[in-house]
Nucleic acid binder design. Structure first.
Length: 547
RNA sequence: GCGCGCGUAGCUCAGUUGGAUAGAGCGUCGGCCUCCGGAGCCGAAGGUCGUGGGUUCGAGUCCCGCCGCGCGCACCA
């Protein structure tokens, strides 16, 4: 049992003796100021009301009843309005290094998910153009959330939903057709709602080259299929460049061809959840929290986007994903209520909170102090590819993940390009490389290094103790980030841990110290390297051994 | 107008689910350079947490009003 668990158990026992009502769930946190000790609890304050005593008095009574001498607790202090601060034996703290090294690539993993399946849907771009920066943020987020869930015991399936049906695809085909007409000598007139990017012209040129005979009077079906295939290929290349892989690609068009959309309509009709008005078929979404009912079948007979969306989420449920997470841009947030309403209206036993949503705000790209708004090929927006080409995939990932998803994000290309510690991704990777460098310079094999038989109790410098405590916190940080679906916590943690590692590195030497010290510090260097590497893995960022 | 999100140091942002004297990086100012990488290091200044109320022993965090910014408000997705 860890000292943390021991303290918690003693707190529960002592509180029970004092007559505290169940459940007693003391929370242990790191004190705001490390000089206060190693662990802190506010339990006495939370018991003030039920026990009708002053917090400081309760803290004293708790302390008197706790048996902590064999739990490595050196002292318990009562401070502030009623905090209890526990100070641990530094040798015990140093022992934390051993577990990091022996767990190695598993350090930080846990099992809250118990192997249950979860579907994470992200990117899901329409195949109408190259991926833009918003998709990039979504790709980084979705992939990191997926990995976080894997680290906490979930069986994750990464899924990409292709909206390859509907109006936008018609607009795409007509846009390509317009360019084809131009190639054949006509005027370029891009249709209303069409796509203007340079890539449309490229697709038309390739199409014309492959169909020289019918370039002028090309068949729309053929153009549409060709354009969608080309753009899917292009998006795949973008994702590949970014290092994101999906388990499943689900095609919206398949929901029509296999009759699922029609089935959903019939079930909704059967459940008396629809009505006709103005030639359209409406769903009573207002019964499920929407501010008004929504059209599901337009008067022209085609469906609005959200009906296939509902059918799609039914398949997730039926495919065994009783947990599903959708990562989307906040500009689509109105879909949340509608899709959930549709699922509730079907009455198939799905939770009201199904699926869960992670919405992210917009990305602004800055360069030389000015906002960058367009790319050459896409015309109206900056592409992920532009960004990756300019600053590299690692920087793109880290920058997209270092902010909360619900804050708007400013992507500063100048900072991302810096080869110095001003650049946060460089700073973290450098800490990793430095730890590796110690082993390289010392001619010691890092991977086979073992802490067995090494006396870690000599790691008692303040910088060492702070670093070790941060390393030991990693599993809690991973668990918290996974539960909250907030990968930015990992990025923040890595920046802080890297800072502690740099501080330690600058203040203390490893190689050339007396053997006892050197071995213990090698263990700390190895443990630091492992934790930073594991954290970067979660974010999908590379871990260079030298820079 | 309605809905969602955001507002924390000059700038970019954290803030452990309500706890102690609100933190980090950059920038500014002042010191350091024979080192396992100076592509750095140490220190200091810098705050009415947009604003006004409320709940609480305790609020940056929860509730209400107001102000500002972003996004959405389709028989588009």
């Amino acid at each position: 049992m860890s000292s943390e668990d021991r303290i918690r158990a003693e707190l529960v026992a002592a509180a029970r003796e004092l007559g505290a009502p169940d459940p007693i769930e003391p929370t242990l946190t790191r004190p705001s100021d490390p000089s206060f000790g190693d662990w802190s609890t506010n339990l006495a304050m939370t018991l003030a009301r039920p026990l009708k005593k002053r917090p400081a008095e309760i803290a004293g009574l708790l302390r008197d009843r706790m048996k902590l001498s064999d739990a490595g607790v050196e002292s318990v202090e009562i401070a502030g309005p009623g905090f209890m601060n526990f100070r641990l034996d530094p040798a015990l703290i140093a022992e934390g290094v051993r577990e990091v090294i022996s767990s190695n690539e598993s350090f930080g993993k846990s099992d809250a998910g118990h192997g249950e399946p979860v579907n994470v849907e992200f990117v899901s771009a329409n195949p109408t153009g190259p991926l833009h920066v918003g998709h990039g943020r979504q790709a980084a987020l979705g992939d990191a959330i997926s990995t976080l869930l894997e680290w906490t015991g979930w069986k994750v399936s990464r899924e990409f939903y292709y909206n390859d049906a509907g109006v936008q695809i018609e607009n795409l085909a007509r846009s390509v057709k317009a360019r084809l007409d131009a190639i054949a000598g006509g005027e370029v007139s891009i249709p209303e709602g069409g796509y203007h990017g340079e890539y449309i012209r490229e697709i038309a040129e390739r199409y014309a080259a492959m169909h020289p005979a019918d370039a002028k009077s090309a068949d729309m079906n053929s153009i549409r299929e060709f354009a969608v295939a080309e753009l899917r290929k292009e998006q795949d290349l973008d994702l590949q460049a970014f290092g994101v892989k999906f388990d499943t690609y689900y095609l919206e068009s398949s929901l029509y061809t296999d009759g699922r959309v029609e089935q959903v309509v019939q079930k909704l009709n059967a459940n008396d959840m629809t009505y006709e008005s103005d030639g359209a078929l409406w769903l009573k979404t207002s019964q499920f929290g929407d501010d008004k009912d929504r059209v599901m079948r337009k008067s022209d007979g085609t469906y609005t986007y959200f009906l296939p969306d509902v059918a799609y989420h039914v398949t997730k449920w039926e495919r065994g994903f009783h947990r599903a997470i959708d990562v989307q841009g906040a500009d689509h947030h109105s879909t949340v209520t509608r899709v959930r309403a549709g699922l509730q209206a079907l009455d198939i036993g799905v939770s009201k909170q199904y699926p869960e949503y992670v919405l992210h705000q917009m990305v602004t790209v800055m360069k030389s102090g000015e906002e960058v708004k367009i790319s050459k090929r896409a015309g109206s927006y900056v592409t992920v590819r532009d960004l990756i080409n300019e600053v590299g995939g690692d920087a793109v990932r880290f920058f997209f993940l270092m902010r909360k998803s619900d804050s708007q994000l400013v992507f500063d290309i100048d900072v991302a390009l810096k080869q110095s510690e001003e650049n946060p991704v460089y700073y973290v990777q450098m800490a990793h490389a430095r730890m590796c460098g110690i082993f390289r310079v010392g001619g010691i094999d890092r991977e086979s290094f073992s802490a067995e038989g090494i006396d870690l109790s000599v790691l008692r410098e303040p910088e060492e103790q702070e670093l070790i405590k941060a390393l030991a916190d990693f599993p809690d940080v991973v668990a918290g980030a996974a539960e909250a679906l907030e990968p930015h916590r990992i990025a923040t943690y890595l920046s802080e841990t890297a800072r502690l590692a740099h501080l330690w590195y600058h203040k203390h030497h490893v190689l050339g110290e007396p053997e006892e010290i050197m071995n213990a510090r090698l263990a700390l260097a190895r443990a630091s390297q492992i934790v930073i590497r594991n954290g970067l893995h979660i974010l999908g960022i590379s871990t260079p051994e030298r820079m």
